[in-house]
Design a protein around this nucleic acid. Structure first.
Lengths: 255, 255
DNA sequence: TTCTGGAAAATCGTATAGGATAAAATAACG
DNA sequence: CGTTATTTTATCCTATACGATTTTCCAGAA
């Protein structure tokens, strides 16, 4: 317990509010950045001193992360990061998406208004710009675009329930991508998380990124044309090929 | 702050563990029992003294309930119980179920094994027994059967992701039923929550309960026969007529 | 009578100490 | 040398005090 006994009274930033939320995001980021490895123990005390806050906000954040399925709690033992998706769970998740998202795309095509059209066009434009110029954090940009794109369509579909559910799936998919990258990384015989970023870029520069954008483009076009059948079909095809892009790497990683 | 300054040292129950979880369930029960009204403020301090625990477990419980969508948090104002489902949200939720559950029933019919068959038969049997003899808490029994039935099918379908998502929807539907009962209740000019139970019974004894059981029976039969097409169709029909059972009352309540 | 300003109260957010329990390491015994 | 029992450590769980912000209430002026 070597901890500064008194809070430094100098740092009197009026700290607006919602420290818990900040901590929640920070811990989440740590998980995504692989600073907290899947399956590893998460110590409340250690986290609170590292983040320089008290235990209370850390507890609240962990409780919420548990509901998100990113953290698990064993009653009197402690918290630990959730184990990563198995191949079966990945398939289950994509099956779920196949049930929901094509319908959402169909509805979006039927219900889209001018505001929605503008937003969709803007999103596709920014994605194309990002993939062209972002040579550094290309993975990051693509991943964020992917999330925004699917969320946007769920939202345009008018069914908030479905949009909410999609949000929950996304973080797990994101984590799986991380897993993939890391496994490949370990095969190479190294273990520092710094390299993860490079592997993402490699993976995405291999063409998967451009492919995904192309498929997104087809979906967006169908929705903008208000061609609901085409939108549904395009979304279905996109999710299926997306799974295929995931799967080989996943299988390789699980060997 | 009139609080006993010292914990009574007499009550030294070795309190096994997971107080947070207990509190979580207790608060949830309070919401379902209408002790905490929708939209009302939830005071941490008051709850902690009422439940005779410290604030910490209450905080954790509330954070989890927020993730469940049963409680909302306004940054520097406090927690409050979530407003009840609007008609639109109810429709959204049922649309979601229509996308997912018929597929789950179809899969269940394809994949069910002997263990699953035994469980399904047992569930239907216990439901029929319950509806016959439980004249007191019939609503409770039916509601719990409904939850178990749909969860069971999701589980037999083999897709844990979908089973998890169903779990999340169920509590909201449960709350909506409460809402309905309460609104009808207020129309009658009274306001004590004690009467809610009676209204449930009235609602369910009016025939809706028996109808639901009949539909469940058809679904179970199809699954046990491993007739996947019939199972899918039966589930679809069940959810649609279930919405119809909800909707008139909901519309009436919103007038 | 109504609106604006300030003061008081309520409540959230934060910090830290202490007790209890489970896991781990060490020592003793077979 | 292996197994069991005991001690030690680490960690969670609980309790309570303090500070900051928001809300509410009341008084005074237009």
């Amino acid at each position: 317990m070597k901890k500064k006994v008194t809070t430094p009274p100098v740092k009197r930033i009026p700290r607006r509010s919602v420290l818990s939320d900040e901590i929640y995001e920070m811990i989440k980021a740590k998980i995504f950045d692989y600073e907290i490895a899947p399956g590893s123990r998460v110590n409340i005390d250690a986290l609170s001193v590292k983040l320089e806050v008290s235990q209370t906000p850390v507890r609240e954040a962990l409780a919420r992360l548990e509901s998100d399925g990113l953290i698990e709690k064993e009653p009197l033992k402690g918290y630990k990061a959730t184990q990563l998706l198995t191949i079966k769970e990945l398939n289950d998740l994509f099956q779920f998406r196949l049930l929901v998202e094509p319908w959402a795309a169909e509805q979006a095509a039927k219900l889209i208004d001018n505001t929605g059209k503008t937003a969709l066009k803007a999103e596709m434009q920014s994605a194309k710009t990002a993939i062209k110029f972002a040579d550094e954090n290309q993975y990051q940009a693509l991943s964020e675009h992917d999330s925004r794109f699917h969320t946007l369509i769920s939202s345009i579909s008018g069914n908030q329930t479905i949009a909410d559910f999609y949000d929950r799936t996304h973080c797990h998919l994101h984590l799986f991508r991380l897993y993939m990258a890391n496994k490949l990384h370990l095969i190479d015989g190294e273990s520092r998380a710094d390299y993860v970023q490079d592997l993402f870029e490699q993976y995405y520069q291999s063409g998967s990124g451009q492919l995904a954008i192309k498929e997104h483009d087809a979906i967006a076009k169908a929705i903008l044309d208000q061609n609901s059948k085409a939108a549904k079909a395009a979304m279905h095809a996109h999710i299926e090929s997306s799974l295929k892009r995931f799967s080989p790497a996943a299988v390789a990683a699980n060997r």
